[in-house]
Nucleic acid binder design. Structure first.
Length: 495
DNA sequence: TGAAATGTTGGGGCG
DNA sequence: ACGCCCCAACATTTC
């Protein structure tokens, strides 16, 4: 029995038509359901790059979602403007009694949503934000004292305990069935039309050439591909030259894959095998490792939700006192991938040319930024935010604060990555380096991790000149490491 | 989801 | 045979 006559589902970063909590609840509650997506100018206008990969990805995904909903007799209204104005306005125009959407945890989104909630309430319309993007959110995983966790391992243990305790079995990772009755999804007015990228002031990108397929189609392909490789995930994920990671991050960012589908894969639920996390000889190491990453994701969402101050400054207040340099040249060298440290430069060029960076390299470049270049980690965070196609504020901020040792459960400040060592360990053959730093192609593998150590004779025989073909290192590892230790110790002592 | 410094051990060269 | 030194290999501690 419908409890509402007409509802509106506001799609945001959940661009699919199945296993979708807001759509599920709307269809369960209402006789008629409208669907809308807004290209929010509050977000788009702040983007610097007119060829932003994310806008193109979203545009492709929204197009496919609209088609999928049309096949079910409905359709997606696609608007371009300020969401905080347009959603309440549309809800009033359509005469809906309730608006459903997936809850967002980022400070700016929460501010917008609070505004929308207020306006809807003033219009007598019920706002119904629901959990959609994570397995457990907000207060679902707390310490025995009822406080949010600030350390990952106990959080993870409590998360797993909660998962096992959830009844009916694993309801939180169960598909939300969407069974629209005929005519329940409302068709669109004839004049409704999808705005083009150009009409919104954006340009197409080379996403397709990079193998980035938007929408549920792209998500399905990636998930199926990773399902074939997940058992090797633990052993292969740290090597950027190898196809070892899931490449699902962009699909998780925009909801073209459901996080619950990811959890089902990690738990082995689609194969009828024993759930990961149980100790046994045949423990699926790859699946456990990947589930761990999904738990990190939930963890950082919860952290930003509970501690919004982390969005703009160090989670640990003592590091407000951390002394950083202001050095535009060093910043630019890092951004452009010309620091003279090959693995760092290869990673930054991967980011610049593809909008993606391998996770191991996110740690290496962030550590180098904070502990070698001695710059304010927030500048690095902002650069990633502008470039990453899978950018998610919670994970990005959490990762940067981890690397800069300013965060909750962060890397201790004295753990400083050696960029040469990391290179030798995780790109031993220099394969990844040569892919993105072609000027080092001729340098022998033995020296490719630290080309300034190339002996003159060998340099001559391979025709490589440091400073001409590739920059000398802009900072010295040992010097900067010692300086970082000094500054961090001073800040920690003050606090 | 480190790395470097320092400490310990034991084999082998040598006088 | 024995003490001594060197140093690799590994372990521990410190940053």
């Amino acid at each position: 029995m419908p409890i509402t006559d007409t509802a509106l589902v506001w799609f945001r970063r959940d661009l699919r038509d199945h296993d979708h909590a807001p759509l599920h609840h709307a269809l369960a509650d209402a006789a008629k359901v409208h669907c809308v997506f807004v290209f929010d100018t509050e977000i788009l206008d702040a983007l610097e790059d007119r060829a932003d990969r994310r806008v193109a990805f979203i545009h492709g995904s929204v197009t496919e979602l609209d088609e999928a909903l049309r096949k079910q007799g409905g359709g997606l209204r696609v608007l371009h403007g300020r969401a905080r104005d347009l959603i309440p306005q549309l809800a009033r125009e359509l005469g809906v009694q309730a608006v459903y959407w997936g809850r967002d945890y980022e400070p700016a989104a929460r501010d917008r949503d609070a505004d929308v909630i207020l306006q809807l309430q003033q219009a007598g319309i019920e706002p119904r934000p629901v959990k959609e993007h994570v397995i457990f959110e907000r207060d679902e995983v707390l310490t025995l004292a009822g406080k949010p966790f600030t350390v990952f391992t106990p959080y993870k243990n409590a998360w797993l305990k909660r998962l096992r305790a959830t009844e009916p079995p694993l309801i939180d990772v169960t598909v939300f069935p969407v069974e629209a009755k005929p005519g329940q999804l409302r068709a669109l007015p004839a004049d409704t039309r999808m705005p083009s990228l150009a009409e919104m002031g954006f340009e197409p990108t080379n996403n397709a050439a990079l193998g980035i397929t938007p929408g549920m189609t792209g998500g399905r392909e990636r998930l199926a591909d990773f399902a074939e490789r997940i058992d090797g995930y633990k052993d292969r994920r740290d090597f950027p030259a190898v196809k070892g990671v899931s490449y699902l991050s962009v699909h998780l960012r925009f909801g073209t894959v459901s996080v619950r589908a990811c959890a089902r894969l990690a738990l082995g639920l689609d194969e009828g095998q024993a759930p990961a996390g149980s100790a046994s000889d045949s423990a699926p190491e790859g699946k456990i490792a990947w589930l761990n990453e999904l738990i990190w994701r939930d963890f950082y969402f919860a952290i930003l939700h509970h501690f919004p101050h982390a969005a703009t400054g160090p989670f640990k207040p003592e590091y407000e006192a951390l002394v950083t340099d202001q050095d535009a040249e060093r910043l630019a060298a890092w951004q452009e991938g010309r620091t003279g440290y090959p693995l760092v430069d290869a990673a930054m060029r991967q980011l610049n040319t593809t909008g993606y960076m391998h996770n191991r390299l996110r740690m290496v470049t962030a550590s180098f930024f904070a502990k070698h270049l001695l710059l304010d980690w927030r500048l690095g965070e902002a650069y990633f935010a502008g470039k990453l196609i899978d950018f998610d504020q919670s994970a990005n901020n959490g990762g940067w604060q981890w690397a800069a040792s300013t965060g909750c459960d962060a890397q201790p400040y004295f753990r400083i990555f050696n960029p040469i060592n990391q290179s030798e360990k995780f790109d031993a053959e220099g394969k990844f380096i040569r892919r993105y730093v072609p000027e080092l192609t001729k340098v022998p593998t033995k020296y490719i991790h630290a080309p300034w150590t190339l002996p003159p004779l060998e340099a001559q025989s391979c025709g490589f000149v440091l400073g001409r073909d590739y920059p000398a290192p802009i900072v010295d590892h040992a010097t900067q490491r010692a300086e970082a230790l000094k500054r961090y110790a001073a800040a920690a002592k003050k606090g």
